[in-house]
Amino acid sequence: MIDFVRFDYGGEFDFGFKGYVVFGDKTEKNVQGCIVRADTIKDLRAKLRNVSGFVGVMSERAEVNRYAVMRKKVDAILDFPERKLDYNIFKLAREKDVLIELSLSNLLSAEGRKMIKLAHELRTTFRVIRKFDSPFILTSGAGSIHGMRPRNQIYKLFSFFGADVRRAEHWSERLYRRFFDEKYIMDGVELV
């Protein structure tokens, strides 16, 4: 079970995750993730040339996210309040095996009408994810320790909005094995 965070977390409290991917600050204890922020496709293409490792894309525009899903270098589409996704992205994410992040920090930051809109969007997102069986990951997406919550609580919260928690655990476990299990190559193929 893996969590995506935006700061270097040393594991002071046990939140129930086996590992963390740190996007941003340099880390020695956890997996280093690399954020690519792009406004245009051209910008994204240029930035992707210089990055390596576990790559997450952040973009406010749906066409940039759609292009990102199709690139081999991209591992995840990261969540943030202004992110825009469309129907095709979920379909492509399944084909290209790109994780779609859904983070708790987004819910924590929303209030009032924003929260109502976000709740509607989340319910739709989970319906589309269920339809295409797209890879997705439920994370805290925390920018500080105060944004973190235990894994069970995060999963419980998203299941209220219609998330298939078992499937989320499957994708998360798969990612964990990709990072830490030397015998794992891909689904159904591993060294014996």
């Binding site: 409290f13 708790l104 819910l107 924590l108 500080s144 320790i145 105060h146 973190m148 919550r149 235990p150 069970n152 609580q153 995060i154 419980k156 919260l157 209220f160």
Partner: peptide, 23 residues
């Protein structure tokens, strides 16, 4: 029960200080 658990999870601040609620 589920409703209360979710509401507890979404508490960010108590008395203007950041908190982490853990069930």
């Amino acid at each position: 029960l589920e409703k209360v658990k979710i509401a507890l999870t979404l508490i960010k601040k108590i008395n203007n200080q950041d908190v982490i609620p853990v069930i």
